[in-house]
Design a protein around this nucleic acid. Sequence first.
RNA 1: GCGCUCGUAGCUCAGUUGGAUAGAGCAACUGCCUUCUAAGCAGUGGGUCGUGGGUUCGAGUCCCGCCGAGCGCGCCA
Length: 591
Amino acid sequence: MLPNRFLENLLRESLAQHLPDADTASVLVRPCPDPQFGDYQSSALISLAKERKLNPRQLATDIASKLALPDWAKVEIAGPGFLNFRLSPSILEESLRSAMRGEHLFFEPTRKPRTVVIDFSSPNVAKPMHVGHIRSTILGDCLARVFRLLGDAVIADNHIGDWGTQFGKLLVGWKEHLDQSALQADPITELERLYKLVNTESEKNPDVLERARSELVKLQNGDPENLGIWRQMIALSQRQFDEIYGRMGVRFDQTLGESVYNPQLKSVVQQLLGAGLARETEGAIAVFFERFPDLKPHPALIQKSDGAFNYMTTDLAALQYRMETWSPDEIIYVTDGRQQLHFKQLFAIFRGWQPECQVNLKHVWFGAILGEDGKPFKTRAGDIIKLSDLLDEAETRAFEIVSAKAEERASRTAADGGLELSQAERKEIARLVGIGAVKYSDLLPNRQSDYVFSWDKMLAFNGNTAPYLQYAYARIRSIFRRLETEESVTDLLQSAATSRLNLSIAEEITLVKHLLNFGIVLEAVADEHRPNYLCNYLYDLAGLLTKFYETCPVLKAEGDTRLARLVLCHLAGRVLWQGLQVLGIEALEKM
RNA sequence: GCGCUCGUAGCUCAGUUGGAUAGAGCAACUGCCUUCUAAGCAGUGGGUCGUGGGUUCGAGUCCCGCCGAGCGCGCCA
């Protein structure tokens, strides 16, 4: 068990004996903000004492004196009643050895495994994926990876927009203006052209609008020709989605269109009417929220006055389907913040509709991506930026930088051969650096704030960026490549599992202590759905690593010290690799 | 009008049940490459955390007012 968890349990047990009515779950042992106070602290006793009108320092003293502390930890009482814990070098060395034995990588799947459905990305058929989909896709994929790492069963669920009024216009366009060769070459662009064309026409000519309506009705009534065209549009779109997801390394366990839920919609509305939750209003059917003060002014339509259903109805049917299919403990929707009201309504309706259902429903929302002018991120011409173009540009820009740096370095270190990168290697590095930079720049800000999209910042090699982290990893790998030519790395690392690992320099100790906090950070990411905690943790780790390099030669060190430093490099590298992996970013052997 | 989010260094942003002296990067200035990748490291300067109250042993964080910004509010998703 990792030290902070061990101390936390110890403190909870002691508290339970001392104050049996106290909520031990509220007792947390966290890293100290300032190392001068110690390694871990708990401030929980202060507030517990206050609630009970006890003297906080006295309570802390009483409980601390009864802690059955192991010989590797010391406790002090500080300030108004903090408990500060200090770890001895022996437990630091032992945690490195146990990691080398493969017992852990500084995190543990501690919670009960849950089943979690994550609804994210949700692109639309016949439209290009664009920057509007990027945050949901990256954030949702990252959360899925973190939950899986911590032992949950995850269903990554892509809810495709394959139904709606736009198909009337698309059908008219397909039947009247389709350019087969353009469709072959670039299906999405052609579908987009058709939609815009018919949309413009219908604004001028009511006949066109009427034809679109009638095509839509035919589709909805199961007309074989229109269904066939619709299915082709879906298949062509899915190819585009697959290509983008392939480039981004995002995968789903389930992909269903909204249309799948069509057969259930009528019944959903009937049930809500039957339960007295919904009623007719101005020809439409809506749910009113009498018992929810904040929702009272905002009824939700579940059936339009023309008899058609909408987003809310589909989401309700999808929610029910997910409950029946997986009985998840939690369902997470990853969308932008403008949909907060919609999800409040959805969750409130579902609670009223199926009050016995225990599922935890979460809307994980995020802010907007802005251009450097502070306005929504668009092209110079004011168009929405397509995701494929964005990824292309990321790779192109990364390739230029990687090449420039590689040549700069080659000219500097030509004398000893240095590190040479072939054209093909540079291309592959640029791909991983470019995509990684885009993802990281999206995960780094607090998800709820709007952020400014900047190529220069995300592709910089200094500062908190993906390339900086990838570089730190590449430097570690470089050490092991050099070592490999001399001796067996595997044998050496195996011997570390049972060897003395002498840590003496401050940089070494700081680094180990930081490694020990990996699990705390992963849990915080999972609990609050905030990957930026992990980004900042990894940035700190990379910074500590490079400081360690500056003061601690690894290959030139000797004996115990050399082995300990190699172990530190190895394990820091594995944590960096694992951390990047759950962010959806690939670590690089060379760059 | 009501609701959500935000306001932290010149700029872009972090800031973990409220916790100890508010942090990073950029920009400016100063050092360090015959030494494991200098795509790096060390250092200097820069803050009444929008504002006024309140709660608390303790507030950037919680509560109330005000100022400013973005977004949302029944037949789009």
